[in-house]
Computed example of a mutant assay.
Amino acid sequence: MSKPARYQGPLPLDQAKSKFVHTPLEDSRFHRDGPRANVEYRDLGMADASGGRIGAKHIRAVQPFGKETGWHWHDMTAHFVYVLKGWVEFRFDGVPESVTVVAGSCLSQPAGVAHNVVRQSDDLELIEINTPADYVTVECSL
């Protein structure tokens, strides 16, 4: 049995629930303007498409991982990581063992929980999705 649609549709483009945004690789530049010096970032346009409700970045390593990020948390309501290449290892407050996310795996980071990136492969490449698009990162000690 299928559920009924949440709203009447199909919708005309000018009434869509999100904007049409296409972000091809060749039109998007990676940049180093972010919290980690060993990676570069590429905005995937989801903040614009969703009116700031969703953020998405393509992140890739550009130099070896030097040291742990240190314990911190983000004031998000949801945070997802999908690894495209390589691997990344996290520690989460309340989770006794470290968590390694490998290529093809997805992680729902518990939003608002302190975590620490402890290791990553030199070829790491991932997609990070969060809500809302704009958030604050706060360092903390555990």
Rank of each mutant, 00 (worst) to 15 (best):
H74V: 08
H74P: 07
H74D: 13
D75N: 15
D75M: 07
D75P: 10
D75K: 10
D75T: 14
M76D: 14
T77Y: 07
T77A: 06
F80E: 04
F80D: 00
F80A: 04
Y82G: 05
Y82T: 11
V83P: 00
V83R: 04
L84T: 03
L84Q: 09
L84D: 04
L84P: 01
L84G: 02
G86H: 01
W87P: 00
W87G: 02
V88Y: 04
F90T: 02
R91F: 01
R91Y: 02
F92M: 03
F92S: 01
D93Q: 15
D93M: 12
V95N: 10
V95M: 14
P96G: 07
P96L: 03
E97M: 01
E97T: 02
S98W: 02
S98F: 05
V99P: 04
T100N: 02
V102S: 10
A103R: 00
G104K: 05
S105M: 15
S108N: 11
S108M: 13
P110S: 08
P110V: 07
P110D: 04
A111L: 09
A111F: 11
G112L: 11
V113I: 15
V113K: 12
H115P: 13
H115D: 12
H115Q: 15
N116L: 05
N116H: 06
V117C: 11
R119C: 01
R119W: 02
Q120E: 15
Q120W: 09
S121K: 06
D122V: 07
D122E: 13
D123N: 11
D123L: 04
D123E: 08
L124H: 08
L124V: 14
E125C: 00
E125M: 01
E125L: 03
E125W: 00
